[in-house]
Design a binder for these strands. Structure first.
Lengths: 253, 253
DNA sequence: ACAAAATGAAACTGGTGACATTCCGCCACG
DNA sequence: CGTGGCGGAATGTCACCAGTTTCATTTTGT
């Protein structure tokens, strides 16, 4: 069924492996989203069914359904009779995205701080510990490498993946106790969008910031139940990343 | 092609009429969403492809794709290998939904009040005028009808549709100038969800409230650029509706 | 002769229908 | 009470068709 000699060296994509009792549509959705967030499908690139069919080794039906779901989320655009396109990265859209994300995150954070219990606190502590390690790992890895190298692709990608996962987990933990599944769901979608923008940049900013310190400050404010401070810090945290990326994207354009 | 004698008197659904250069998938999406919001597919009801195929007179492919999109929005649930289901109405979920909606609406409102220009103001005035008329129409229609009648279906449905449209347009107008498409998009989705809950109730609450007054107060606060007041009013406005519906749904359960 | 518009063909998307396969739930049977 | 088919539905593939877009070519006007 699967011809291993046919892996087609050029385009690396996440292979489908549908877990038990999982639909091919769901698997295709996950793989596609993964690859879109990582930029394996370039922003603006047309996503032709026939090509995707070969890349992911599925029929057109699960692909089309997955793409429809992704278009509802905003990662893909479905235009009239012209098929699907990976959503382009746009500076104005990014700004917009950040105000929305900040707003939702703040609200969720306030609610979580108001409602969270001990278990929630413990999970924040745990996530803070992990993101702290990831922050330092990234920072030290950077000092080892010469200035402007910033591996173009593939080399230390695992580290970046790990940091992104830890970062997502940390921020998710802080708001987990907010009590509104809708807020959490929306927040998750906005986070994914932001991650896509983040990964598209070269992460040159790292030198200028002490991410570990920022994260620990946020964690401290959360654990002290200082909602105002936590919101201020998170807003600044997001805005700093946004500013750096905007700078980079702005230059590129 | 279309057999008019086959309209199948029982289940009334929105017929598909794909506008020029529009995909059948999009048309199916619109019709399905419309019918889901109006409760023409009962909450929790299984949405079997074969049945929908006959109801809407389309092939299975556009239907499945439309349902995938709707499941991303939360109007439909797609469970494993058991097909699609109209999302159930749940009291806890409704509460959750309202906190999320209030939060997003407040944020958008603040931004709009900060950024809106004259044209925006004018459109708020216009929308306020229209919702005012709709509010009074509903109120007067209610006094004409005897107490507990509340037409079960089909009779004065047009009035209700008109009110819902005007209500949506009014609240949309107040936040239109917020400048964040993401916020607007999220807000729209949450509004749709709430409308579904609203329409599921019998609208008995109307007697107890002066909706026209509430809407005009909100409009006034917005036009005076009093963000704090506007947010307070809108939050109360939503909470009142939510409370009434929760009461009704609670009784039903 | 050259640029712009019109034409035509190829490619692709969107959609249908039939069929294979897999999975779930149920019922009968041990 | 467990278990093993069994029917039906959902998922997915394939082949095929219709309508659009797109691109290259041809035609036309100056």
């Amino acid at each position: 069924m699967n011809d291993p000699s046919l892996t087609d060296g050029r385009a690396q994509v996440t292979p489908l492996h549908p877990g038990a009792g999982e639909t091919l549509t769901e698997a295709a959705y996950r793989s596609l989203r993964n690859d879109l967030v990582r930029g394996r499908h370039a922003p603006g690139e047309r996503l032709r069914i026939e090509r995707l069919r070969r890349l992911y080794d599925v029929g057109p039906t699960p692909l089309r359904e997955a793409l429809q779901r992704l278009s509802a989320e905003g990662l893909v655009r479905a235009d009239g009779n012209r098929g699907f396109t990976a959503s382009p990265l746009d500076l104005a859209d990014f700004d917009d995205l950040n105000t929305a994300r900040s707003a939702v995150e703040r609200e969720a954070l306030r609610l979580a701080i108001a409602r969270g219990d001990e278990l929630w606190e413990a999970q924040v502590v745990s996530a803070a510990y992990l993101i702290g390690k990831a922050d330092r790992a990234i920072a030290s890895e950077r000092t080892v490498q010469p200035e402007g190298v910033a591996q173009p692709d593939g080399t230390a990608d695992g580290l970046l993946d790990h940091w992104e996962a830890a970062n997502a987990a940390f921020h998710r933990a802080t708001v987990a106790a907010c009590g509104s599944n809708w807020l959490l769901r929306i927040r998750e979608g906005l986070h994914t969008q932001c991650e896509r923008y983040r990964r598209a940049s070269i992460y040159r900013r790292r030198g200028k910031r002490d991410l570990a310190a920022e994260h620990q400050e946020i964690a401290a404010a959360v654990l002290e139940r200082d909602a105002d401070l936590a919101c201020t810090l998170v807003t600044a945290h997001f805005a700093a990343t946004a500013g750096d990326l905007a700078l980079e994207l702005g230059k590129a354009q």
